[in-house]
Design a protein around this nucleic acid. Structure first.
Length: 583
DNA sequence: GCCGTTTTCGGCCCGACTGTTTTCAGTCG
């Protein structure tokens, strides 16, 4: 790091590189490449997107082929990208294949092969050209297409609007309560002999965002369950239903897939529909080597020719020689090599919350109210950490005001039993890496969160590293600055941030605000592996959002963190002694 | 294009649905 400054060398982020490889895979697919080659690009993209450390740096160091799915060919393409700023094969394919072709593959029933056929035979290069070809009745003349294809494609084009955008994903915080409420309603169906109802899919894995809700159930009377779904106030529309399940849409616009299965294969179905796809593919590939074939219906053993069904997930994993794997870990990130599952943090492990706001800045409640609400949640300590400066959200807290606030916090702390109230601040990291208050005032605080809130483009890495090196900074707040689903975060060298945090004894935050969950899972895991302690905070702006810490716990579990990896899973007396300099 | 507790070559997860076909390729999850 010292040899080069961030301003000179702007490496593409892992996410940006992964996007390019995904695009390359899409274009190769449209170009007619064999499916395994396409998959190789997508696997490579996944490995890079989930790599905790800079893939650009790994490429320069010659270690990038250590990532699973990155071989000599992809390494060469990464080298080209770093040296020339682009990948020759990508440029060539972009020139040969119209961008609109990729768009129309988002229409249901139209994949890469058929899209390519439309292009080659009719010159279709996008949605408008497709519509024109259908209206001229030219599509039905192609082999493999017919009148029905035209009809469906036209309906899909009408429904899709202008841009044929990828389907929206909802924040977990929006999807999960609806999914859990639906599950509760279905479990309560009287007289239907409902045995089990479980939420599966990405919601069960507690992913950042969710595309649809998968619900798996067993019932003696499936129709009663399906009727209950159709009759729920949470459901806006049922599209399809039969004895095996139903497809519906919630009032909040989320697709629901209910599957009703026999009790003896509930475990197989639940495992299958919990995913992730990558986890399932990896399980099946490993199983094949042992002569086993896994599907959602059972596990077929080559040796006996028998297919076994399992009522529980535990049995499914046991048959494969694996411990039951918590859903949050099912992302094909090494969980299949576990002999036993590591302990994961639980929501009840959090003893304190070290990032929250009051009316002193942009919060909606006072110090006392926040402390009481936190005590109600069972917390032992909180830090009041109002924003230091005004930058569009609420009042600034100038030094004199901060002194008043500290006095108020001390008074509330004295007054209240059962919870310790600490004086803190969420201090802005300036463009030059400096903090908003002088050290003398900072030293009066019990807890200091340092965050970037402004000038995201101005070398955030250097500023955050400088904040880590400040002797009074305890934790870096929402380190990457991402906001789901739209903002990807600052252009940050996370290797440098994690190294600085590890070197200086600075904690890194997992911000529990559901649109942040920042650090996110892959990076939180890398930070832990580097010896950094994480803080899970609510960043609450009112009593009602103190519970947001739960989303942070979900991220921590997806990061394989135990309670021991989380600073505020400790009593305050223990944590305060762990801070740098032992203030 | 990747990869090796059978392999440096020949494999690479599984099943349902659809519309088009008279046995299946493509698409989807």
């Amino acid at each position: 790091m010292a040899a080069r400054t961030m301003a000179e060398t702007k490496d593409p982020s892992n996410a940006a590189i992964a996007d390019l490889l995904d695009e390359l895979g899409d274009l190769y697919e449209l170009d007619g490449a064999v499916v395994h080659r396409v998959l190789a690009y997508r696997n490579g993209a996944k490995a890079i997107r989930e790599a905790p450390r800079s893939v650009a740096a790994m490429t320069r160091a010659g270690t990038v082929t250590e990532l699973p799915g990155i071989g000599a060919t992809l390494e060469e393409k990464l080298r080209a990208l770093l040296e020339t700023g682009t990948i020759p094969a990508l440029e060539k394919l972009r020139a040969a294949i119209p961008a609109g072709l990729l768009q129309i593959t988002r229409l249901p029933g139209l994949g890469p092969k058929r899209a390519r056929k439309l292009h080659d035979a009719l010159g279709v290069d996008g949605p408008q050209a497709l519509r024109a070809a259908i209206e001229q009745r030219r599509v039905r003349e192609l082999p493999g297409f017919g009148a029905k294809s035209e009809e469906r494609l036209l309906a899909a084009l009408d429904a899709a609007g202008d841009d044929l955008a990828a389907p929206d994903r909802q924040l977990l915080s929006r999807a999960l309560p609806v999914g859990e409420a639906l599950v509760e309603e279905l479990r309560a169906v009287a007289g239907a002999g409902v045995d089990r109802v479980e939420l599966a899919g990405s919601a069960r894995r507690r992913a950042d965002t969710v595309k649809d809700l998968d619900i798996i159930a067993t019932a003696e009377d499936p129709q009663a369950l399906i009727d209950a779904l159709a009759g729920s106030d949470l459901i806006a529309e049922v599209h399809r239903s039969g004895t095996a399940g139903a497809h519906a849409t919630t009032q909040t616009g989320l697709a629901v897939d209910l599957r009703v299965v026999a009790p003896d294969q509930f475990g197989n179905l639940l495992q299958h529909f919990t995913g992730s796809k990558a986890h399932n593919v990896a399980i099946r590939e490993a199983a094949v080597k042992r002569g086993l074939h896994v599907s959602e219906y059972g596990i077929l053993d080559d040796a006996t020719g028998e297919s076994e069904r399992f009522a529980s997930e535990e049995q499914v994993y046991a048959r494969l020689g694996l411990p039951w794997i918590p859903p949050e870990l099912r992302e094909d990130r090494g969980e299949l090599r576990l002999d036993e599952v590591p302990p994961l943090i639980e929501p009840g492990d959090l003893r304190g919350d070290l990032h929250m706001h009051t009316t002193a800045s942009d919060g909606r409640a006072g110090v006392r109210e926040m402390a009481l609400a936190a005590r109600e949640l069972g917390l032992e300590y909180v830090a009041i950490t109002d924003h230091s400066a005004s930058h569009g959200f609420g009042d600034a807290v100038p030094p004199d005001r901060l002194r008043e606030l500290i006095a108020e916090v001390r008074a509330v702390d004295q007054e209240l039993d059962g919870i310790a109230v600490l004086a803190g601040s969420e201090v802005n990291i300036g463009v030059d890496g400096s903090l908003d208050y002088d050290d003398e005032l900072l030293a009066e605080l019990d807890w200091i969160v340092a965050s970037v809130h402004t000038a995201f483009a101005s070398d955030p890495t250097r500023r955050i590293v400088a904040a880590c090196e400040h002797p009074l900074v305890d934790v870096i707040g929402h380190p990457t600055g991402r906001k789901l689903p739209q903002r990807t975060g600052y252009d940050l060298d996370l290797d440098a941030v994690i190294d600085a945090a590890a070197r200086t004894g600075t904690f890194l935050e997992i911000n529990g605000s559901p649109a942040r969950r920042d650090l996110h899972d892959v990076h939180a895991r890398a930070a832990r592996d580097a010896g950094v302690l994480l803080c899970i905070d609510s960043d609450a702006h009112g009593p009602d959002t103190l519970a947001n810490a739960r989303w942070g716990v979900m991220t921590a579990r997806r990061a394989w963190l135990a309670a021991a990896d989380v600073a505020n899973a400790r009593p305050w007396a223990e944590l305060r002694a762990l801070r740098k300099g032992g203030r």
